[in-house]
C-alpha cells in the first residue's frame, strides 16, 4: 500500500522549485484572498503595515495569524498570542513528520529551509506530488514560495486598503481550499483499506471539534487515522 518505496530517488532541483511554484499558483490566489482579509483585520486590530507584513513573511501560518490578530490588544497579551500560535500550529508537527520518507534523502539545509515554507495547502499538494513518485524534493519549497509571495503582498494590500475591500467570501473563495483538499483526498484513496482510518478520523475530528476550541480536531483526526492503521496492521 505504500507509495513511499525506499529505493525512490528524491532530488532537489530548480525544476522542482518551478514545478511546485506553477502548480501552486491557482491555490496561492485563494491564499491571497485570505491575505487581503488578514491585512484588513490586522489594520483594524491596530497592527502597523510593517508589523502585519513582517508577521506574514516570517510566520506564514494563516489560521494562527488570524487568531493572533483577534487577540491583539494594547498592551499586547504576549503569552496568549504566542501560546495560541503554538497550539494552533501543532498540526504542522504531523505534516512535517509525514514528509520524512522523502525529506530524509535531502540535505539538512534543503529540508529545513523547505519546511519554513510549509503551509496546509502546499503541504497537501507536495504529498500528492511525492506520492506520484516524481522525486521532486524541491516541490515544497517552490509551492511554498508561491504561497509566500501572494500571502505577503496581499497582506500589504489589505493593510493599506483597509475595509474598502469587500468580503471575499462572496466570490466563493472560501470554498477553494475545501475543493482542493477534496480533490487531493480522492487521489489519496487506496481502495477499501482507506475507508476505516478515514471514518475513524472523521468521527474523532467532529467529536473533538465539539469539545475543544481551535484546531485540535485536525491533530486529533490525523492521529486517529494513524493509530487505526497501526493497530489494524498489528493484528
Amino acid at each position: 500500500m505504500s507509495a513511499e518505496t525506499e529505493s525512490e530517488q528524491v532530488g532537489f532541483s530548480r525544476n522542482g522549485v518551478r514545478a511546485g511554484f506553477v502548480t501552486c499558483v491557482p491555490v496561492a490566489l485563494g491564499v491571497g484572498a485570505y491575505g487581503l482579509v488578514f491585512g484588513v483585520l490586522a489594520r483594524e486590530a491596530g497592527l502597523s503595515l510593517l508589523t502585519a507584513v513582517v508577521m506574514s513573511a516570517t510566520v506564514l501560518a494563516g489560521a494562527a495569524q488570524l487568531i493572533a490578530v483577534g487577540l491583539w490588544d494594547w498592551p499586547i497579551p504576549v503569552v496568549a498570542v504566542v501560546g495560541t500560535t503554538l497550539v494552533v500550529n501543532l498540526r504542522y508537527l504531523l505534516m512535517g513528520a509525514s514528509l520524512r520518507p522523502w525529506f530524509t534523502r535531502l540535505s539538512s539545509r534543503q529540508a529545513y529551509m523547505s519546511l519554513f515554507f510549509m503551509a496546509d495547502e502546499n503541504w497537501a499538494l507536495t504529498i500528492q506530488d511525492l506520492r506520484d513518485g516524481n522525486g521532486r524534493g524541491a516541490f515544497l519549497l517552490g509551492s511554498g514560495l508561491a504561497i509566500w509571495v501572494f500571502w505577503v503582498v496581499c497582506t500589504a494590500i489589505g493593510s493599506v486598503a483597509g475595509s474598502r475591500i469587500g468580503n471575499p467570501e462572496t466570490y466563493g473563495l472560501s470554498f477553494i481550499l475545501t475543493a482542493i483538499f477534496l480533490a487531493l483526498l480522492v487521489s489519496f484513496w487506496e481502495g477499501r483499506d482507506s475507508l476505516i482510518p478515514w471514518v475513524v478520523a472523521a468521527v474523532v475530528a467532529v467529536s473533538v471539534d465539539v469539545v475543544l476550541p481551535g484546531r485540535w480536531y485536525i491533530l486529533a483526526g490525523g492521529l486517529a487515522a494513524s493509530l487505526t492503521e497501526v493497530t489494524r496492521n498489528v493484528r
Binding site: 504531523l94 483526498l185 485536525i218 483526526g221 494513524s226 498489528v234
Partner: peptide, 20 residues
C-alpha cells in the same frame, strides 16, 4: 508500524479538515 501510521497521516488530516 510507525511507518504505517505515517502513511495514514495525510489522509486523516485532510479528512479531519474537510469533515468540519
Amino acid at each position: 508500524s510507525v511507518r504505517d501510521g505515517l502513511d495514514a497521516l495525510p489522509g486523516g488530516i485532510l479528512v479531519a479538515i474537510l469533515v468540519v
